[in-house]
C-alpha cells in the first residue's frame, strides 16, 4: 500500500486504528467496540462504518471469519507515523522550509521539461566528446 496516497485520518478513525495496533490479532467490530474508550460510548454501527471507511482507504485489511469480518492494520504504527512524517519532511506541501534537512533536489522544485531536454543533450554531447 502506498501510505502516502492515503488521505489524512479523522480523530475517530485514529482512535479505532489505535485499537487495532494495540492488538496482536485481527479484531471483530464488536471487539473493537469493547476496546475503544470514548465518552459517550460509540454505537456498533459507528465502529462498523469507521472500519469500513478505513478498509476503503486501504489502511486496514479484513477477513471473513464465520459471519463477521475481522480487521487488522495494514501497516504497523511505526510505519504509519514514519511514512507520514517523511511525507511532511519531503515537502509535498508548498512553503516547505526545514532547518535540519538537505534534499537531493529542492523538494518543491519542478523543472521545465524543455530545460531537461536541453541538459540531456548537453550530457549526451559531453559523453560523445563533442564540443558544447
Amino acid at each position: 500500500m502506498s501510505i502516502a496516497a492515503a488521505p489524512p485520518l479523522g480523530e475517530l478513525e485514529t482512535a479505532v486504528l489505535d485499537v487495532l495496533w494495540s492488538s496482536s490479532s485481527a479484531l471483530s467490530v464488536r471487539a473493537v467496540l469493547a476496546r475503544v474508550r470514548r465518552r459517550p460510548a460509540l454505537a456498533y454501527t459507528t465502529v462498523l462504518t469507521v472500519l469500513d471507511r478505513l478498509h476503503g482507504k486501504g489502511v486496514v485489511v479484513r477477513e471473513k471469519e464465520g459471519k463477521a469480518y475481522h480487521y487488522s492494520p495494514r501497516v504497523t504504527r511505526e510505519e504509519w507515523f514514519g511514512e507520514r512524517a517523511a511525507r511532511a519532511l519531503a515537502g509535498a506541501a508548498p512553503g516547505h522550509d526545514d532547518a535540519v534537512l538537505v534534499a537531493f533536489l529542492d523538494s518543491t522544485e519542478r523543472v521545465d521539461p524543455h530545460l531537461l531536454d536541453k541538459l540531456s543533450a548537453l550530457i549526451a554531447a559531453r559523453r560523445k566528446g563533442k564540443p558544447r
Binding site: 511505526e78 517523511a86 511525507r87 519532511l89 519531503a90 509535498a92 523538494s107
Partner: peptide, 30 residues
C-alpha cells in the same frame, strides 16, 4: 525525524537508509 528514524533501516551498498512513500520523487538527509 524521530518518527522516520523508527522505520526499519535497510542497508544499501553499506549505507543505512529508510525507504518511504513520500509522495515526492526525492532523497534527503535529515
Amino acid at each position: 525525524i524521530r518518527a522516520v528514524r523508527r522505520l526499519a533501516p535497510v542497508r544499501v551498498d553499506q549505507t543505512e537508509v529508510r525507504f518511504v512513500d513520500s509522495g515526492v520523487p526525492t532523497a534527503f538527509t535529515a
